[in-house]
Design a protein around this nucleic acid. Sequence first.
DNA 1: AACGACTTCAACCGCGCACGT
DNA 2: TACGTGCGCGGTTGAAGTCGT
Length: 330
Amino acid sequence: MRKPDPLGKKNNNIPNKLRKGLWSPEEDDKLINYMLSNGQGCWSDVARNAGLQRCGKSCRLRWINYLRPDLKRGAFSPQEEELIIHLHSLLGNRWSQIAARLPGRTDNEIKNFWNSTIKKRLKNSSSSSTPSPNNSDSSEHRDVMGGLMPMSEQDIMAWCMDSSSSSSPSMLAMAMSNQFQTLPPLDNSYDMSATAGYFNNASQCFTQVGVGDSFYGDHGIFGGGDDMGVGVGGELFVPPLESIGLENSTVTDSDIHKKIPNYTNNDHYFSNIDSIINHCNNSSSSSNKIEDLIGVGSYWEGQNLRMGEWDLGDLMGDVSSYPFLDFQVE
DNA sequence: AACGACTTCAACCGCGCACGT
DNA sequence: TACGTGCGCGGTTGAAGTCGT
């Protein structure tokens, strides 16, 4: 934690000097009282009117991450953890969007939890099952990307879990495509029927094939990160938002081939792509616009989703089917 | 008890986007 | 169009807490 600047020490003697660091209970009280009586407005006004020598940004952060009355404090439940992992496999590091699906949790909280706990756990599970000492060696990444060396599932996971590697999605896709020919389908993976609920609309936006920076090996969910892709055993990679082409929603086999050189229509591991593509193209027959596919004006918890930041809410429309969820997706 | 290594998490930073002028 | 401002997001930092020796 950062040391709080004690009120009245030095900053208080300097008018207009904005405080930094930990919030004191007095500051918290001021902000809470102001927010409860006035509601959220312009954050710089909040800071000023509440009598806080903080920048609006700091006030916003404090309120959102700590003071908001609807926050659920305490440890993450196993159900929440599972949901976070699943959502991360879909959304990548879009913590705010993940948090939007976990009532009472903040993006910062989830981000910290992921970085400190889940990431480490997945990393350990991958390394413990991989006797090869090479799987954490960045030099191997280059070999893999060069397509010269087979990449094990654990290698891929370890690489994907390594946030420091700003891997090229397309190159990784190539590596994965090679791997798809050697890896058997995961025994305990989600099959398409199981994931159909989550992906019932994702196929409509299937424009890129690749692998992102997230991986959920234990449950056979791969993906997230920078590209959409298709995983072993028919799992579907769901793209992050920026990779979804708004103008080119119609997908052809050649598009897939461009992204995954070794892809063939008959490939066992890609057998589900064709149905996805068909669904995609049929659904978008009258329009290539994403907004027509998912519908502009989708709402999530009352917030209008603007184009360009639609957040798979539709794609995961029945995420509430998770039996352990204590909230309903609207 | 003391110390160092490791973990956790609140808060900051910088960037990009939206919007108004 | 260019610029300024505010907001939100994701990445990073660093102090406090915890653990191991």
